[in-house]
Simulated assay, not measured.
Amino acid sequence: MTKRQTLILLLLLGAQFTLAVDFSIMNVAVPVIGRELDFAAENLQWIATAFALSAAGFSLLFGRIADLIGARKVFLAGLVLLTLSSLAGGLVDDAGPLLAARVAQGLATAMVTPAGLALLITAFPEGPLRDRALGLNGAMLSAGFTCGAILGGLLTDTLSWRWGFFINIPIGILLIVVTPMLLKGGSRSTGGKLDIPGAVSVSAGLIA
């Protein structure tokens, strides 16, 4: 593995780990958030579910968009959205805006995850190096889910649940700055169309 490939791997794994952490980092803080923002008890689960539904429902759509306009563009756009939505989520004082921030974080995940996987496959030729990179990618996702719960508890106990959002800001800015330096634009597909009704119907089905 070349030095450049190592740096690309660290960049992409760092992004995937951050997204996996986001999936579970707020779960531990749900009771505290509910008390501070006057969430109705029956609506507390939406703090986690709003993120998961938007991430799952739109991953295929943004994966197709990455094919059409380039994976790096979608990857960067997702990182920008993650950073801004994390800032907004940490500053809100009402239940509605908090859930909107979680939906935006989920959409950012739906953008970064397939685009990052495409960039990972492009950066490593087929063979042992790609297999190793994909294996590490899966391991980082699994580790992120576990670390998110632990980190969420630590931040809530020592600082505030808001730091579950704020912690993404410096990481997001770093990734946004480094990405253009390391990653090429990548190839694009020609033809085809976006299945927006499909993405909406998948999300609606999951919500139902």
Rank of each mutant, 00 (worst) to 15 (best):
T2P: 13
L7R: 09
L9N: 02
L12W: 02
L13T: 05
L13S: 06
L19G: 08
A20Y: 09
V21K: 05
V21T: 11
V28K: 00
V28R: 02
V28D: 03
P31A: 08
V32M: 05
V32C: 02
I33T: 11
D38Q: 13
A40V: 15
A40T: 14
N43V: 12
L44M: 15
L44N: 08
A48N: 14
A48V: 14
G57I: 10
L61G: 04
L61P: 01
D67I: 07
I69N: 01
G70W: 02
G70N: 03
V74G: 01
F75G: 03
G78H: 06
L81D: 03
L87I: 14
L87F: 14
V92N: 06
P97S: 11
L98C: 09
L98V: 11
A100K: 08
R102Q: 10
R102N: 09
A104S: 13
L107P: 01
M111I: 08
M111T: 06
T113F: 10
A115L: 12
A115P: 12
G116S: 10
L117V: 12
A118E: 01
T122W: 05
F124K: 05
E126Q: 13
G127R: 10
P128E: 14
L129C: 01
L129K: 09
R130F: 10
L134I: 15
A139L: 12
A143M: 13
A143K: 01
A149N: 06
I150F: 13
I150V: 15
L151S: 05
L151H: 04
G153N: 07
L154F: 02
L159C: 09
G164F: 06
F165N: 03
I167F: 14
I171R: 06
I173S: 12
I173T: 12
L174Y: 08
V177D: 07
T179F: 07
R188F: 00
G191E: 08
L194P: 03
D195P: 04
P197M: 13
S201G: 00
A204P: 00
G205W: 08
A208T: 12
